[in-house]
Write a protein that binds this DNA or RNA. Structure first.
Lengths: 199, 199
DNA sequence: CGACTTCTTGACAGCTCGTTCAAGAAGTCG
DNA sequence: CGACTTCTTGAACGAGCTGTCAAGAAGTCG
């Protein structure tokens, strides 16, 4: 029996979501505990008591991010025709409306950012992002498989390989766009990729 | 006239190259001045006197990286047929043999790594990587233009758009591969991309 | 040789950061 | 109320970092 003590004064879930936004926009290393304390209105000791150290806190945020993204991706791709939706997803890689209020994504894809910053030297982070990538390709490959069967997508390549290629495209777009997004050029490139999938 | 004083005891160019390797493999933030001092066998004061502060040092290394890569890319793409070479470049994004002795690249593409770590909040870094990306797409678009004229590459999309897409693919591959490279899957995805360019 | 310039060395200041911890506050239960 | 548990607060610690600087070494030039 856990004898109940003083109740927590903040919402753990909401706090994790807000920390996710901060980590997302600034990255792991550039987000200090003090930044979190200021933004979350929760003191250091409480953060440590609730979430463990900074690294565990961050990894928990990444897990949440992927969890939400995976659910939205699965839902979005369960439709026909597939290619228009796929195009939309590529151009808005993380339209996770449930999580962030602003229209644009703070800074590309959090999984990609984590890869650049912590992988491969942090093995737990490596496992999380590897699983996320595998999840993405599995979901997309499933959808492409259906779309191939429906005659919408070319079967000149296996769905898994097409999905892997799309993963590269999303992550590349997300990364390169940080240096300044030429929307016209980006859209044209995405269209070229989508056209390459057409049957 | 500059009265000559005590001569420098280390080779500036070689030192920059070795610093590049270190920055490449560990990233900007994770490479401390002490790491550089140990690896380069040059004391702090000399580094500061020769290269300015850490940030300028790093940006100089990135400039060198791109300079070498650009030269090799231009040379490599000046050939026909284009697609086999393009495939090779995608799968070995930074085979800059002149710079590194080992076969594999220390850690993806340094320009991509810089993008993830310093862009957009560092404006000088942003300009460097943006110029590099533009250089890449210019060179590749030129080659694709020739290959389209030769009937090797499909003209269903503009060469610039195809080049932009290839930039995304290289950077995406470079990033995602940090989480563990499934060579079979990666090659198959690249092949799918190359096949999509075929006329 | 002596004046002058530049490079080398490594100690040091100053700062930021992650993490800990003791003291107190806010609950529950008997 | 009093014992017990858990959460809160914020000061303090120690580690690691970047950048500086004074003293000395190694050259050139007159």
């Amino acid at each position: 029996m856990t004898r109940t003590g003083r109740p927590r004064e903040f919402d753990k879930g909401k706090t994790l979501e807000r920390a996710l936004e901060l980590f997302w926009s600034r990255g792991y290393g550039a987000t200090s505990i003090q930044d979190l304390v200021d933004a979350l209105a929760v003191e250091r000791g409480s953060l440590y008591g609730t979430f463990g150290d900074k690294r565990r806190f961050y990894l928990e945020a990444v897990r949440l991010y992927w969890q939400v993204y995976e659910r939205r991706l699965t839902a979005a791709l369960d439709t026909a025709p597939l290619l228009p939706v796929l195009r939309e997803i590529l151009t808005h890689p993380a339209r996770t409306d449930e999580l962030i209020s602003e229209m644009g994504t703070p800074n590309g894809c959090l999984v990609g950012n984590t890869t650049a910053e912590l992988v491969p030297h942090d093995s737990e982070a490596t496992e999380i992002v590897a699983r996320s990538y595998r999840g993405f390709t599995d979901i997309v490959a499933d959808a492409l498989h259906r779309a191939q069967a429906a005659g919408e997508v070319t079967d000149s390549a296996r769905p898994e390989d097409q999905a892997q290629l799309l993963l590269y495209v999303v992550q590349g777009l997300s990364l390169v766009s940080r240096a300044g997004l030429d929307k016209k050029a980006a859209l044209a490139a995405i269209d070229a990729a989508i056209d390459g999938l057409r049957a």
